[in-house]
Nucleic acid binder design. Structure first.
Lengths: 158, 158
DNA sequence: CAAAATTCATTCGTATACAAATGATATCTG
DNA sequence: CAGATATCATTTGTATACGAATGAATTTTG
């Protein structure tokens, strides 16, 4: 009588009637990090399809400089969420393109001050409408209300 | 009587009472791409603080292989959203670590079949609980309900 | 079946992204 | 003021990420 001892795959919970709760399995597809990476990839692809000759970080740095005016290199990096090593590369490439210039700060010889050029200003002005379209296309699968919600929640975890 | 001709900054809309709608300005901080990039950065930082010796893409590839079983290199890449060049690097590094092996497919000589090793399986099993904590911490600023909403909306645009 | 098209993997080049180390300059503290 | 700290920028090394070109193998087509 009775039943045999517990065999592999069985446990006391099962005996007690707490059936097979799929052990809170881990599905990669449902993890925020995985979805975040894919959403970001899709956005970058949309960006590249509309603005082929500037990357999102380059545009971000230029747009921030356009909006905010002169800043130091590291400060600009902070504003657009790039560390010192990353912002340097971005600025170098924008400098090569003639969109900005860099000069030593007289009052603090460690600093570099970054200026946007007229060409840089003009580029931002011309690209803003495309950038708006990129935002639109990225959010196209969502209703206006959903898009607002997404932006709000995403901002909270950013 | 009458009023002077339109001067700079004025327009017919203003005359009609549609006041100064700030020209739908473009604020970088409100663009989905910018927020997406920052949220992704934060997640990667959290991941690195908990799982120092494996990157999110490496863990994704290994977890997918664990879950799905043997696949070709490119197919694995598709499953974890990495192009051929990217997945190759990831697999090379996991191979070096002994988490997987790669061998030529006999029936299709173009293909490489990727096998997870016992060490790889073990690593996934041990890391899953940490991975869950990473998800939790990334979503910590949100309520449970908000987290579900975010995941759902993000999946739609991913 | 033979030519054309496709698929799989590799390689190269460019661009983020970040840790860590370094040198120059500023600021703080005792 | 002098030594300790901190900040700014640079450099190096590693790891995604992707476009484009390439070669080998397979599949499709005419």
């Amino acid at each position: 009588m009775g039943r045999p001892a517990l065999s592999a795959g069985e446990n006391i919970l099962k005996l007690a009637g707490v059936e097979n709760e799929p052990p809170a399995e881990y599905r990669l597809q449902d993890q925020i990090g995985f979805v975040l990476r894919k959403a970001h990839q899709r956005h970058v692809a949309i960006f590249a399809s509309r603005i082929g000759d500037l990357t999102p970080p380059q545009f971000a740095a230029l747009a921030m400089l356009h909006e905010h005016g002169d800043t130091s290199q590291n400060q600009l990096g902070q504003m657009v969420a790039m560390d010192a090593a990353t912002i340097k590369g971005v600025i170098d490439r924008l400098k090569t393109r003639g969109f900005l210039t860099v000069e030593k700060d007289a009052s603090d010889k460690r600093r570099l001050t970054v200026h946007i050029t007229p060409e840089g200003d003009q580029a931002v002005r011309e690209l803003v409408s495309l950038a708006k379209e990129i935002t639109q296309e990225t959010l196209a699968p969502l209703s206006t209300r959903e898009a607002e919600t997404l932006l709000r929640l995403l901002s909270k975890i950013a």
